[in-house]
């Protein structure tokens, strides 16, 4: 059931995450996140969840990356010296991550995993549009509330700073 495509995509996902964490330049890290997110979207397609995949691709890989990149460009000016120092600091700490991941991966693979549960009854309704729009009204209401809160957040946090 698990195909080569799955293996490749999962490998790419982990590699993307590791690169996001390890790369010294913040901008590259944000790009790494976008790539990880895009791979995740493809995986979601593979897992029969196309609508969520579209959301992941447009909102996370697109919008959130745009937010990160513009923030980084607003806050960050790196010189070559900075970068050299930072690279050293990162080597100091970050060589550990691949080791940890290897150890964790090996440990998890060696576990003989049994899914000892009875599968739940099949759902009464499995179309995401109907689940989202007809059944889970409360979540939609919550989304509206949180979007409104976000709008006030933008007003309160991003408006002009007078004292500068």
């Amino acid at each position: 059931m698990i195909t080569t495509t799955h293996w490749v995509l999962l490998g790419a996902l982990v590699a993307g995450a590791v690169w996001t964490v390890l790369t010294a330049r913040l901008l590259r890290s944000a790009v790494g996140l976008a790539i990880t997110s895009a791979i995740l979207a493809i995986l979601m397609f593979q897992l029969a969840s196309p609508l969520a995949a579209v959301f992941e691709l447009s909102v996370c890989a697109g919008l959130i990356s745009a937010i990160f990149v513009s923030t980084i460009s607003m806050t960050h000016r790196v010189t070559a010296e900075d970068l050299a120092i930072r690279l050293k600091e990162r080597l100091h700490w970050f060589w550990l991550l691949p080791l940890i991941l290897l150890a964790a991966g090996a440990a998890l693979i060696s576990v003989h995993f049994v899914l000892d549960i009875r599968p739940p009854a099949p759902p009464a309704e499995n179309d995401v549009r109907i689940v989202l729009w007809k059944i889970r009204h409360l979540d939609l209401l919550g989304q509206i509330a949180i979007l409104l809160a976000g709008a006030f957040g933008v007003v309160a946090l991003f408006k002009e700073w007078k004292d500068e």
Partner: peptide
């Protein structure tokens, strides 16, 4: 249960 899972993910 992909319907519910997708609704949650969105």
């Amino acid at each position: 249960h992909t319907g519910l899972a997708q609704a949650m993910a969105i």
